[in-house]
Simulated assay, not measured.
Amino acid sequence: MKGPDDDPGLEGKVAIISGGGAVGDGIGNGRAAAVLLARAGTRVVVSDLDKKLAERTVEMIKAEGGTAVAEACDATREADCRRLVDAAVDHWGRLDFLDNNVGIGSRGSVVDEKPEEYRRVMQVNVETMFLLSKHAIPAMIKTAKGGAIVNISSISALRPRGLTTYTTSKAAVIGLTRAMAVDHGKDGIRVNCICPGPMYTPMVYARGMSDGARTQRARASVLKVEGTGWDIGYAVRFLMSAHARYITGQVLVVDGGVTLQGPERDSEGH
């Protein structure tokens, strides 16, 4: 006997993935989410500041028979966010999902951080989600009578370990998620947040990472394994699916149990 949610409700829907590119053929959180949603039949708008990176994600999706388009977007600019949402609706007549995946890191303390750098991190890590959601939500209501938004935070927001500006921004993402969930539940829009642990993604390994550092990161988890962008991608797909129809305003920690362990300061959780 089938339950009401055996259909994940992803086929034929339309998603925007911000920060959906990655260097080369690397699998970042956004690229993984885009590929996995496309495999489920969702049509995907992949956006990135560097359109070439988004185009590579689209190539991967099309190679598997999926449907996707690439768009350049500086999500710190409201005009770009508006244009990105319009592009999704223009392509396929609707918008159902938004994955707010844009983010940058920082390492300074309150004393060390320059005010302009603090403002930049807050702008990229928080304001981009505000701006994209501001334009995506009315489109979801108008074209799909609802939808789902996933915001990417970090375990740094739950267990601070320095990285003060980054930690502050990621904690703000959780607050933004919960407030949006309350505001737009009446519109049929679910809003949830994922807190990744130390994932092995291009954002991290592009700076260079030794085998020893990777081993240390794996040991930080109770599972003794290292996470990847695919782990976050699967979590995004679940939260956007009908299987998560009764979940909103929640924080899903995807860290292999790192936050159950002692302090770990090796790298950003995003």
Rank of each mutant, 00 (worst) to 15 (best):
G229L: 12
W230L: 09
R219K: 14
D211L: 12
T248D: 08
G208E: 10
A206M: 13
H243A: 13
S210R: 06
V225L: 12
L239H: 03
V253H: 08
I247W: 06
W230I: 06
L239F: 10
V222T: 15
I232G: 06
M209R: 07
V253G: 01
S210I: 00
S241Q: 13
V236G: 02
R207M: 10
R207W: 09
G229I: 05
S221A: 15
V225P: 02
Q216C: 03
M240E: 08
S210Q: 05
Y205V: 11
E226P: 00
S221K: 03
F238R: 04
W230T: 11
I247D: 10
H243T: 03
Y234T: 12
G249D: 06
V251Y: 01
V222E: 11
W230A: 03
Y246T: 08
G212N: 09
E226F: 03
S210E: 11
R219T: 08
R237E: 07
T248G: 04
A235S: 15
G227A: 09
V222L: 14
A244L: 11
L252E: 09
G208H: 03
V222C: 14
R214P: 01
R219C: 02
M240K: 00
I247C: 14
A218V: 00
F238M: 11
E226V: 05
F238C: 06
G227C: 07
G212V: 04
Q216I: 05
H243G: 14
K224I: 02
W230N: 05
W230S: 04
G208T: 05
L252K: 07
H243F: 13
V225A: 09
G233I: 01
S221P: 02
V251A: 10
Y234F: 14
G208P: 05
Y234C: 01
E226Y: 00
Q216H: 06
A218F: 01
G249T: 09
I247T: 15
D211C: 00
Q216P: 00
M240G: 10
A242K: 12
V225S: 11
V253E: 03
G212D: 14
S210F: 11
